[in-house]
Every structure is written in C-alpha cells, then in structure tokens.
C-alpha cells in the first residue's frame, strides 16, 4: 500500500498526524506529508485507512 497527501487539498487539520504519526509528518505550517514514498509497512495499513477516512479535506490518497 502506498499513501500520498495531496498538497493542493491539505489544509493542516492534523487529523492524519494525530492518528498515525508513524506515517505522516507535519511541517511548521501544519501541512502534512507522507513519510513513505514506497510501500508502507503492512502493520500500518489499517492506520493509513483511518487517516484517509478522517481527513476533512479528502486529501489523502491510498493506492493498493
């Protein structure tokens, strides 16, 4: 599974970072970025789905 934060959509709500700090990092302005360009660890897939489903801006993309 790969994850990506659409920077044109992210408004810095931080919901993904609160749910999965292992997967996302936030910059000083609050915008979120994926820590992984390649496949994420399998044991974090559930957290990635939750982060995606909690984003108020629909900014997180998941590719299986």
């Amino acid at each position: 599974m790969k994850i990506r934060v659409d920077e044109s959509k992210c408004q810095g709500h931080s919901r993904c970072y609160i749910i999965a700090p292992e997967l996302f990092e936030v910059d000083d302005y609050g915008y979120s970025h994926s820590r992984f360009e390649t496949d994420i660890p399998a044991d974090l897939e559930e957290k990635a789905r939750l982060a995606c489903e909690n984003c108020p801006e629909f900014a997180i993309e998941i590719a299986d």
């Binding site: 810095g12 936030v26 302005y29 609050g30």
Partner: peptide
Amino acid sequence: ILPWFSHK
C-alpha cells in the same frame, strides 16, 4: 501565525 500553533 501558523508556526505559532504548530504541534511542536
């Protein structure tokens, strides 16, 4: 102002 309210 955003950096004043970052997580850090």
